[in-house]
Design a protein around this nucleic acid. Sequence first.
DNA 1: CAATACCAAGCAAGCGCTTGGTTTGTAAAG
DNA 2: CTTTACAAACCAAGCGCTTGCTTGGTATTG
Lengths: 217, 217
Amino acid sequence: MGAKAMSTPQEQDEEQLFAQHIRQLIDAGQLVDPESAKGRLLQAAAKLFNDQGFERTTVRDLATAVGIQSGSLFHHYPTKEAILCAVMEQVVRFNTTRMRVRLQQALNTREKLRALILCELESVVGGTGDAMTVLVYEWRSLNPDSQRYILALREVYEDLWMTTIAAAVAEGLVSGDPFIIRRFLTGALSWTKTWFKVGGQMSVSQLADEALRLLIR
Amino acid sequence: MGAKAMSTPQEQDEEQLFAQHIRQLIDAGQLVDPESAKGRLLQAAAKLFNDQGFERTTVRDLATAVGIQSGSLFHHYPTKEAILCAVMEQVVRFNTTRMRVRLQQALNTREKLRALILCELESVVGGTGDAMTVLVYEWRSLNPDSQRYILALREVYEDLWMTTIAAAVAEGLVSGDPFIIRRFLTGALSWTKTWFKVGGQMSVSQLADEALRLLIR
DNA sequence: CAATACCAAGCAAGCGCTTGGTTTGTAAAG
DNA sequence: CTTTACAAACCAAGCGCTTGCTTGGTATTG
């Protein structure tokens, strides 16, 4: 799921540390093992919901994708909406964990800012990209209770952002209102999903530099 | 539909000029008169599609919103999807026309860039905001033919952007790859729909300045 | 007296989900 | 090592409802 082309010892440590955290979350029951039946169901759901949208995806589509009968889905989740909610919960938990690890490794505010940008870009254009897009685009299909639940998880994630941006402003690294900066960034980074192709001329790391260049002068 | 709080003579001229262009397009049959039955249908559709999403909106919802029977919709448009397509077509035509008028009034590249940003922001957070969001979010619900049709219209709009950004780069006003700049901007500006509130502390014009500040150093 | 705009009724298809029963994996009991 | 027990995973069938859209007819308008 993470970036595969890592090389330096520090980055290898980081990857290992991250994998360790993920394993802990799986054991604690907060994250579904992607190799389990449930995990494969969620991955297929993320892909289908991203490709066709939640409403256009039928439980029969989903069942076919994982090779079971449509009724059997409801052994794993009580409703179709609960599957959507699980997809969103998983991706937020996964990415929050990765961001925490990367932030810890960053030495100064500038590096932290770049780490956040890179993390979000990797989330959006990388392995969890389907689920991330679903998280943004299919919000309306959640019932109010689920919305509140996911929103609470997202707030943890957003706090990491706001803390870092506020520090950058305090240090004079960037200028402007932190909230507006974050919101411009949210839009710009999530939109990369629609046009950036991994493996093309530009690397994700270079793209992160371009985004950072917009903020820091 | 346009901004209401205009004051200077130049801006009044601009508004008048714009209204004149719109009237021409209505007479030419390219734009639907918003006061006609069809026009009110499209406005209601834009609002519903934005609020609930295209798939979640039933033809019965739509018919109730305009005060007719569900079957009567199909006197105006052959399918539900055609209504979605019309909503998108209208908003692209409308905003392309406004952008052309504003560009003509701008004296230099910096002003042109600001005019484009302001136009797009007004499209997104103003009267056509519902339709603009639908244009971005409901793309998948169009059949391939409709997608091609709308895409062709959008390309005209995007050409106005790319020409201006290329000029700005050539003049050294902004730095970076024009395509990446436009794509970052597309995401950042369209995302304002989700958080910016017209009539709040910040005006749309101020927001445009903030966005411009990201680009120009 | 056409053309336009609409209503009232309903059809065929597809939807999420339920039900009752069967297979499969696992682990203690004999 | 075999048997028994039991829960988790899944199948086959289909129910009740909603969906987009059709049809045949009726007002309204220029």
